[in-house]
Amino acid sequence: MTPATLIARKEAGELLFSLRGLAWLLALCAALSSFTLLLVGSTELSLLDNAQVVCDMAGLITVLASLLALIVGIDATAGERERGSLVPLLLIPTPRRMILLGKLGGILIAWIAMFLLSIPYLWAVGSTGQNLAEGVALVAILGTPVVLTFGFLGMALGSWMPSARACLMTGMIALAVSASPLVIGPSLRQSAIGRIFDAINPLSGTVNAYDAVIIDGKPIIAQWPGLVLALAWLAIVLASAVAAFDRLSR
């Protein structure tokens, strides 16, 4: 087993089996449960079309998983530094890139766990409607680069900034700005600034793709612009995380 795999397993194990990680996953599930219960508890929301609900749920899962990935990413660097375990880790006779790869793998495994936990919720709200399978597939295809982008951003911030609190605040602001399309309706995003923001924001591209596939029934393959945008951001943030981690190790 390579050092990277070992570190990835350790990072993922901390999320899946440590009390702190389980509490994060529990918070994610509590938020998803609250949303689903709101859907059946409110007359207005209970009349939403299944496809609309699956689309909203897909967006919520992506944002919540991005938030959790951001926290996991920050914890993997700034958190370790504050607990005093980062320096011993950097001193082990393993290339720094392997350590980084292991930590990135930990974020990927964390996202897989979150994605698997979200599937029952998508089924519960959308099994009687249309395009549920396409919706689940799209969360996997487009959600993965978006969630990893925020996870890697957390790692980059954790390597750059001296305190975990400052990293968390900066990351949360970035996520809140990026997730604004979920709160602001499409009509309010029709201005020139809104269109420019939509064109560069990976979460906008993802939410628009969810809408097009799940509600409008368009083919997944036609959503390649959203995927390209998400992959471009992933590459930029990954490069930033690598550079920041390298600087940290020097």
Partner: peptide, 21 residues
């Protein structure tokens, strides 16, 4: 119109957090 079925939502909304707890 296909809408959310509470019979499917409630077991999932209660069951998944309970399992994690």
């Amino acid at each position: 119109k296909p809408v959310v079925q509470s019979a499917r939502v409630i077991p999932v909304a209660a069951g998944v957090p309970l399992l994690l707890m």
